[in-house]
Amino acid sequence: MQLKVLQATVGLLAAGSAYAAGLAQKRINTLVTFGDSFTDVVNTGDGGVAWPVYASSYANLSLHPFARSGATCSNKITNRPFPSLFESQLPTFFAQKANGTVTVPADRTLYTLWIGTNDVGSNALLTTYGNLGGGASIVDVTECAVGWVETMYQNGARNLLVQNMIPLNLIPTYSNGTYPDRFWNLERNSTAWSLSMFNLVNAGNALSKALLTNLAPKLKGAHVGIFDAYSLFLDMYHNPARYLNGTAPLNVTGSANACVFSLGGATNTCTKANGSDRDSFLWYDELHPSEQANRIVARQIAEVARGQQNRWTTWLS
């Protein structure tokens, strides 16, 4: 099964596709978000305001946030004790939609999904084999994320945006210069972690693009897009002066809230940037983008919602 999927991926990427125009005529007024701590508006990964709140403000949208910190696509694939997309977030959304708590105009609602960081990370694919019989792989978690598009479509969604994984090999906890931190304070081979994460993320993003390219034309009346968060964050990493605007020296390798632990986590030494200094950092802590980075994400998503052309977004239908 996995070999056939990968063969199909190669064929689709070679063939390419004629990309669609997007949401120019949709007049989006509602944003519904799914995912993990990158998107959670309550337990915010950036230590400040999450990007959906900024995006809804920038584009004057009604926001319905369902993303939850720690989530994976499915606990049946990579089991973590957090509200996963398929076992928690989607059932909650469907229940609230059914009882009228959430109102989502079909043509004027944009649905987004940003998932994968926990699926490929420590205590998941990077360090374990997953829950499926014989173990889980990047193919399984990617097919799960693409399955969100089909599930939402079958339940009336017509404007769907998948945000791909960022270059996690550059984020402090998975970089080549990693150290014991709050997310993993045990032994690790930094070079091996970074290379493995590079391969997992790039394989998952390529497979997701191929599967979505194949799926999108089959969903009549739907607009399916990919937001290339990977390329956006890579650009922020290599060209920080275009994006970061804090009062401290610009920093794309450290984090605004860094904690170096002893092996096993018995002790730690923490440093924290305050005030406008925080906006000089690409990363908030060892695992999460900074609030300034998320403002950039929010501006891009707001452009998408307003029906404008966006450098980082490709519409497949």
Rank of each mutant, 00 (worst) to 15 (best):
D228A: 06
L90Y: 10
I166G: 09
L212F: 10
L287R: 06
F233P: 04
L263W: 09
N159D: 13
K4T: 11
A222W: 04
K26V: 06
V252P: 07
T109S: 14
N123M: 08
A14L: 13
V149F: 01
N118Q: 07
V297N: 01
R158S: 07
E303F: 05
K97R: 15
D279C: 01
G45D: 04
D36H: 03
S137C: 11
L61C: 08
V102M: 12
A222S: 10
V149W: 01
T30G: 06
L12E: 15
G246T: 05
N202A: 00
P105W: 07
F281C: 07
E303S: 14
D181T: 05
L244Q: 07
R311D: 10
P289M: 03
A145Q: 13
G35F: 03
T151Q: 13
N159L: 04
T30R: 04
V297F: 08
W315H: 02
V141F: 09
F198C: 02
A305W: 02
D46W: 00
L195Y: 09
T117L: 12
Y243C: 11
R68H: 11
L31H: 03
S74T: 14
K272P: 00
Q154G: 15
R80T: 12
M165R: 01
S74W: 02
N294M: 15
R158Y: 07
S175C: 07
N159V: 09
S57Q: 15
P240W: 08
V149R: 00
V10P: 01
T103N: 12
N123T: 02
R182M: 09
N199L: 11
F93A: 14
R306D: 14
D36V: 00
S57D: 14
G35M: 08
G265Q: 04
W114N: 11
S88A: 14
T151V: 10
S69C: 12
Y19S: 11
T178V: 05
N268Q: 14
T128E: 13
T314Y: 05
A8K: 13
L170K: 14
A256T: 09
M236N: 04
L200S: 06
N99P: 02
V141I: 15
H223W: 01
H238Q: 14
M152I: 04
L282Y: 06
A98C: 01
T314Q: 14
C270E: 08
P91S: 08
I28S: 03
L85N: 03
N251R: 05
I115F: 05
N189I: 06
L234P: 01
T191M: 06
N60A: 12
L23T: 05
S208Y: 00
Q96I: 01
V149Y: 02
H288A: 07
R158G: 09
V41I: 12
